[in-house]
Design a protein around this nucleic acid. Structure first.
Lengths: 111, 111
DNA sequence: AAATTATATTTGCCTAGGCGAATATAAGCA
DNA sequence: TGCTTATATTCGCCTAGGCAAATATAATTT
């Protein structure tokens, strides 16, 4: 991996909203966009753009099921980035915001 | 750690030049600015600004010795961020650019 | 086909932060 | 006190990427 690639990875993770999405996917495995919109309490547009950013950086992948799009971590992310994600989880798992997010998944789905 | 703090940390690491500086400090422990300018082959201004960014994010600390400024990782970074730095090292240590940097330290000092 | 729902993308606006060039500061020395 | 060297900071310019609002697309239903 060259420094530019690694820098781009960190840039993809340098946004609170994207870290919250990541934390949710790490715990839940796969989530629908409407779950994320409801849980994160963000506009559809903002949520979708951040997901696109993560997609473009090969961190998440999307699967369509009817009208719904389900997102999960890419195989690449799940394997190669595991140590990095462990670091992230250990550092934000106890955060109140993250715990609230996790508690809200499923209860706040918008669709 | 909240998501904003973690995001700021990743933003600090989302620059190839700052990653190269980090890789050098991880290997060498402490380096003078002029070493970095020579090794990275960057202008003094660019190098200094990136070091300031790392300083402002509590990743490096500076010590003056006469005219020279010596930089090293903060205690905080050396302890709390160790797992993250291990990930970084494992992912870029074999990179040609990084190895060239390491080989050049000391040989290219500008002062 | 038209309407509805879920999601993605575009547009306009604004800020952070990149760079080079210039300038400021700090230390050491003649 | 100047002069030189090392380093830091500022300025002007430019791009990436944040947001909200609007619009486009894709699937489903009637």
């Amino acid at each position: 991996m060259n420094t530019e690639t690694l820098a781009n990875l960190f840039k993809a993770l340098s946004e609170p909203i994207r870290l919250r999405i990541l934390a949710l996917l790490l715990e839940k495995g796969e989530l629908c966009v409407c779950d994320l919109v409801g849980t994160l309490n963000l506009s559809q547009s903002v949520t979708s753009r951040h997901l696109a950013y993560l997609r473009n950086n090969n961190i998440v992948t999307a699967r369509r099921e009817g009208v719904w799009m389900y997102y999960q971590l890419t195989h690449y992310a799940q394997s190669e980035l595991k140590p990095l994600f462990n670091f992230i989880q250990q550092n934000i798992a106890h955060n109140k915001e993250i715990q609230t997010d996790l508690a809200n998944v499923g209860k706040t789905a918008r669709c």
